[in-house]
Design a protein around this nucleic acid. Sequence first.
DNA 1: AAGATCAGCAACCGCAACCAG
DNA 2: ACTGGTTGCGGTTGCTGATCT
Length: 228
Amino acid sequence: MRKSCCEKQDTNKGAWSKQEDQKLIEYVRRHGVGSWRTLPQAAGLLRCGKSCRLRWNNYLRPNLKRGKFDEDEEDLIIKLHALLGNRWSLIAGRLPGRTDNEVKNHWNSHLRRKLINMGIDPTNHRLSQSLPRPLKPHASVSGTSHSSSSRDDHQSQLVKAKCDNDQVSDAGSCLEDPTWEFPNLNLDLRLTTSPSIAIVGEERKQINESTVSRELDCVPPPTLLLFM
DNA sequence: AAGATCAGCAACCGCAACCAG
DNA sequence: ACTGGTTGCGGTTGCTGATCT
């Protein structure tokens, strides 16, 4: 049985040094990304290809946006998670400069807890306690216009929304609703020219993610939310 | 001040998808 | 259609700094 690349001897593990970063940056600058398997040797790095790809994609590539997520980004993550589930790469694709790892970490450390505190099940975006279903659906959690409000304000808005027959969990609540079937949603993310996209069930294979991602690129986030 | 606990983040690992032969 | 190699994704781990007792 072939060893995985990371099990090879003479490969470093753990945190990257500045020198390693520099080597990787320099190599990519000269040759571009790709051929991760052979890159480490070519670049003079004692790392496996996977490790190099991860380091590049998550920390070294240009145009990465580091630092705190703003409220709009958090809103968008919550909404996209309700729609897509744990498809972090797809979600990150809608957040310019953010990586899937970063989004995933932020979800697990902040947003998940935030939803739990609000009484919302983060896995299905439904209220944890049994409350009547909303009489009429709304497009978004709290809009994207609360960026000036404090986090507490935001949270209280959401809690208020919850008490007002919840608008928060609309998008995701249907995911677990026994009367609601994902495949029948025929979720059309297309706005204009190209063929429509339907997310068919939870089977990952049935979604051409790159196509979805490309389609989503045509859809400004607030418009996308209208489908939810 | 010191130890314990918590939170955030970087990185690893395993698996599935993809692709070329 | 099958197979083996490569890449990408998501879950998980472990380290580190911050906060609490």
